[in-house]
């Protein structure tokens, strides 16, 4: 999977008398690759475009500019058959386990829907497959005929995962799959995702704002800020030696579950995340960056490659070797 210079602009039209057009650059010129069998995490705060990017990759949205390639074919130019095949191989799991399952459908129909849509096997075999999937994600098969509201958030998320796995996909987009869950349930789902990845050789694009979760699950991490990639690198390397100041501050903002670290040296970023409607010129992070200098306000840093790392900063943090 590969995307090139992907851009998605949303045009927000003011309704009524004063119709003024604002362009929201939700995803602005992003290129990245997802390799087979890896977990690539997209990390960033709200409004950084990580969810939009996920939806562009799975073709729930069409890009304003740029292309997405899946196994070397451009998904924008696929014919009907190609799209069908693509839909089978790439699936998505959503954040909100309450909104992502149709409340009027029974679990069996929810999980069976992908099989039904692609006419895979007969009804009886489909139901058997549903039972297998339910066992796989840890939902008792007696619950097949229940409705989603009879389940807790974690169980619903399991149902969502079963549904996504029904077509034996290769790539799974996980859009904040655990952020709505309780802590004890969160770790269950994370472990389930890890187990499934091993078992089915899945590739994950894991979208999250929770850095600790990302550290646990991913192989590579891509940090986004206001529609741009600021840093990419392997999980361990990136967390231990961040190159971009934003990555560092993001990490230092996370409250650690140990009061001994309470008085650790931390930098708390000032100000709010700028609006993606009118991003600051130059480096988009310069308004909040304590290291910003003159050039940061004028020139936008390009994504630079450094070994297996990439970063977009004029003054990257020293790398301790």
């Amino acid at each position: 999977m590969e995307c090139e210079n992907l851009k998605k602009y949303f045009v927000a039209t003011g309704k009524g008398m004063k119709s003024k057009k604002d362009v929201v650059r939700a995803v602005d010129d992003i290129s990245l690759e997802i390799y087979k069998n890896e977990t690539l995490a997209l990390v960033g705060e709200s409004g950084c475009g990580k969810s939009t990017l996920g939806r562009l990759i799975i073709k729930l949205l069409d890009p304003t500019e740029g292309e997405v390639y899946y196994k070397e074919s451009n998904i924008a130019t696929l014919n009907k058959e190609g799209i069908n095949k693509f839909r089978k191989q790439v699936q998505i799991i959503f954040q909100d386990p309450y909104a992502s399952l149709n409340p009027r459908m029974k679990v069996v129909d929810l999980i069976r829907e992908p099989l039904r849509t692609h006419n895979i096997a007969k009804k009886k075999e489909q139901i058997e497959k549903v039972a297998d999937l339910m066992n796989l994600v840890g939902i008792r098969t007696e619950y097949m005929t229940r409705y989603p509201h009879q389940f807790s958030g974690g169980q619903r998320q399991r149902i969502g995962i079963a549904r996504a796995l029904a077509l034996n996909p290769e790539l799974l987009i996980c859009d904040e799959p655990v952020s709505a869950l309780d802590v004890s349930i969160q770790s269950q789902i994370l472990n389930l995702l890890k187990k499934l990845q091993e078992k089915f050789n899945l590739t994950y694009l894991f979208i999250s704002h929770d850095l600790a979760v990302v550290r646990y699950i991913s192989d590579r991490v891509c940090v986004m800020f206001l529609g741009k990639i600021v840093e990419v690198g392997s999980c361990k390397d990136l967390f231990e030696h961040p190159l971009h100041p934003y990555t560092k501050f993001l990490m230092s903002a996370v409250p650690l579950p140990d009061p001994k670290f309470r008085d650790r040296d931390r930098v708390i970023l000032e100000g709010d995340i700028p609006s993606p409607i009118n991003p600051p010129p130059g480096c988009r992070f310069h308004t909040r960056c304590p290291y910003a200098r003159g050039i940061c306000q004028q020139e936008e840093p390009q994504l630079v490659e450094l070994g297996d790392r990439k970063y977009a900063c004029h003054f990257p943090l020293e790398r301790v070797i």
Binding site: I58, L60, F94, A99, N102, P114, H118, G160
Partner: peptide, 26 residues
């Protein structure tokens, strides 16, 4: 706009079926 409709689209369910199976019952 609900995620379950998005989910159905991601699976490749056609518009007519989405209307019939997901929108109408709700």
């Amino acid at each position: 706009e609900k995620e379950f409709v998005e989910g159905a689209r991601a699976i490749g369910v056609s518009k007519q079926v989405i209307l019939l199976r997901h929108i109408f019952p709700n």
